[in-house]
Amino acid sequence: MATNVGEVTGPRHGRAPAGPSKQPSRRSVRVGRLDLRLSPYLFVAPFFVLFAVFGAYPLIYTAILSTRKNTLTGGDAGFVGLENYRKILWDEHFWIVIFNTFGLFFVATVPQLIFALLIASWLNKKMRARTAIRMGVLIPNITSVAAVGIVFGLIFADRYGLANWLLQSVHLDPVEWRNHRWSSWTAIAFMVDWRWTGYNALIYLAAMQAIPKELYESASLDGASAARRFWRITVPLIQPTILFTVIISTIGGMQLFTEPLLFNYGRIQGGSLNEFQTVAMYIYETTFTNNYNVGRGAAISWLLFIIILIFALINFALVRRSVKGQTS
């Protein structure tokens, strides 16, 4: 772990506490050692205690539920082993929603992160009305999901929607947004990116602020172009943050729920042939509508959990290698 960016200038706010340094007494050495050994655990303990109750317990509970025949309305009807898993994996419906989830993830996330990086680098400049502009970029994230859903439902309405009105005004054919896979995915990706690009840009921006300016200045004196500075300095130096957003977006993308749901006016099937139903929607449909089948829903949840896990690890490895590649 050799993270020494701060070496050049040190963080701006970081200041060791002032005061005359005394020779430490034996007692204080002992306390110091205890402090060194215990503090890290104390620092992370609150997270794990709270998580154990409100995170781990539900997860284990869900695992147990997934092996039982259980509906919300009918109650528990006994242990069924892996029957729930078998039913799901042998049902074509599950594979359709898996395909949709991954497809939507790629269509939505790749452009989203690239735009976020660009926007962050634009925001990372001196300009007028800086606060207002940064605020403007984040604004999509502060609206209530309900209102956003209604607005985009109207924008992407097939016949009387704004998007088609614009298409027709430049003499293009209107699109039946919900009737094809590609068109529904495009519209949903637009909704997702609209809501989350600014969010990621802000996270990138925070990381970019920690890069010492001198690196850029001297690189620029050496004749490095803006693009080169971006790829050679910015991207490698915020690599941990990029990794972070990739993992977060993977997790978020795999759990995509609200946007496709609202895009279809609250109908959980995601299109008449499930063209844009995601795994999370399938979980909700199974658990809270149709059969109120909690056992089955829990099993899908666990499958999703495992898929996210594997996929996040793959992404992590890929991004880490490619971003590192930039630096050597």
């Binding site: 772990m1 993270t3 020494n4 960016v5 701060g6 070496e7 040190g10 963080p11 970081g14 060791a16 506490p17 005061g19 340094s21 005394k22 430490p24 204080s28 110091g32 402090d35 060194l36 503090s39 890290p40 620092f43 992370v44 997270f47 998580f51 996270i203 925070a206 990381a207 920690a210 130096l237 915020i238 690599q239 941990p240 943050t241 990794l243 972070f244 993992i247 977060i248």
Partner: peptide
């Protein structure tokens, strides 16, 4: 978890080990 992970990734690049060391040497507790 999001918060811990985010701060951890940020601190990784934004805080130098020397800084922590310096504070230690000055006798500051963790």
């Amino acid at each position: 978890g999001f918060g811990v992970f985010m701060i951890r990734q940020y601190a990784e690049s934004a805080i130098s080990d020397e800084l922590i060391e310096a504070a230690r040497v000055d006798g500051a507790s963790t």
